[in-house]
Simulated assay, not measured.
Amino acid sequence: MQYFLVKSEPFKYSWDKFNKDKRTFWDGVRNYQARNNLKEMKEGDLVLFYHSNEGKNVVGIAKVVKEFYQDPTTEDKNWVVVDLVPVQSLKNPVTLETIKADERLKNISLVKQGRLSVMQLKGEEFDRIVELGS
């Protein structure tokens, strides 16, 4: 099992919209490091859903249900998507401030590489954020 975090601006694609859709492909990634992280995702991996810009908080858990394939929004073969489904909302959204203040989370990419839209997490980092949100 691997763990990831994906970021979305709520006005573009929110956690609520994701829950209504019940499934989505994660498109629009145009950064090679983020793209490589998408390529690492395997069916069954868990993904934290983070609202960027507005809110700046982790709001839910999703699961990878289809591994990477060509991004259907572009003909450029460099870009891929994965399919995600929502699993559960966090009882309490976990703010970026809370994450930055937690000694166990100080080295995650969300803190170190704030502009990266798809990042890997260690199991203990994922578990800590979920714990903070319960």
Rank of each mutant, 00 (worst) to 15 (best):
residue 94 V to E: 09
residue 132 L to E: 06
residue 57 N to H: 05
residue 66 K to I: 02
residue 15 W to H: 11
residue 74 T to L: 14
residue 79 W to P: 05
residue 53 N to H: 13
residue 28 G to Y: 01
residue 11 F to W: 02
residue 105 L to P: 12
residue 106 K to N: 06
residue 92 N to S: 13
residue 91 K to W: 00
residue 20 K to M: 12
residue 48 L to R: 00
residue 37 N to L: 00
residue 18 F to K: 07
residue 103 E to H: 10
residue 10 P to G: 07
residue 23 R to A: 14
residue 54 E to D: 12
residue 39 K to E: 15
residue 26 W to A: 03
residue 1 M to V: 10
residue 116 L to K: 13
residue 46 L to E: 14
residue 14 S to G: 10
residue 99 I to M: 13
residue 47 V to H: 13
residue 112 K to G: 07
residue 31 N to P: 03
residue 97 E to T: 14
residue 101 A to S: 14
residue 41 M to C: 06
residue 46 L to G: 04
residue 7 K to H: 03
residue 130 V to R: 00
residue 28 G to P: 04
residue 55 G to V: 05
residue 39 K to L: 14
residue 67 E to A: 15
residue 114 G to P: 06
residue 129 I to W: 02
residue 124 E to K: 12
residue 118 V to W: 07
residue 22 K to F: 02
residue 94 V to N: 09
residue 4 F to M: 08
residue 100 K to H: 11
residue 132 L to S: 02
residue 128 R to D: 03
residue 123 G to L: 04
residue 48 L to N: 05
residue 97 E to A: 15
residue 129 I to D: 04
residue 81 V to D: 00
residue 49 F to L: 06
residue 90 L to M: 04
residue 31 N to R: 01
residue 41 M to F: 09
residue 93 P to R: 06
residue 58 V to N: 06
residue 95 T to G: 15
residue 12 K to P: 00
residue 9 E to M: 12
residue 39 K to I: 08
residue 119 M to W: 00
residue 91 K to H: 07
residue 3 Y to A: 01
residue 86 P to G: 11
residue 124 E to V: 13
residue 128 R to S: 06
residue 5 L to D: 01
residue 22 K to Y: 07
residue 97 E to L: 08
residue 77 K to T: 04
residue 28 G to H: 05
residue 107 N to L: 13
residue 83 D to W: 12
residue 92 N to K: 15
residue 120 Q to A: 14
residue 34 A to L: 00
residue 51 H to F: 05
residue 37 N to G: 02
residue 113 Q to F: 14
residue 27 D to M: 00
residue 108 I to F: 02
residue 115 R to W: 11
residue 125 E to I: 09
residue 19 N to Q: 11
residue 53 N to D: 07
residue 119 M to A: 13
residue 40 E to V: 00
residue 59 V to D: 10
residue 71 D to F: 10
residue 46 L to D: 11
residue 113 Q to Y: 14
residue 112 K to C: 05
residue 83 D to S: 15
residue 5 L to R: 01
residue 43 E to D: 07
residue 84 L to I: 08
residue 47 V to N: 05
residue 134 S to P: 00
residue 63 K to A: 11
residue 65 V to W: 09
residue 21 D to P: 02
residue 89 S to C: 09
residue 108 I to A: 09
residue 32 Y to G: 01
residue 94 V to I: 06
residue 94 V to H: 04
residue 123 G to Y: 02
residue 15 W to R: 03
residue 37 N to K: 00
residue 134 S to G: 12
residue 44 G to W: 12
residue 35 R to S: 08
residue 74 T to P: 08
residue 109 S to L: 08
residue 3 Y to S: 05
residue 65 V to S: 08
residue 101 A to Q: 13
residue 113 Q to S: 10
residue 117 S to F: 07
residue 10 P to N: 03
residue 29 V to H: 06
residue 119 M to I: 07
residue 76 D to C: 11
residue 27 D to F: 02
residue 24 T to I: 06
residue 57 N to K: 04
residue 120 Q to E: 14
residue 100 K to Q: 15
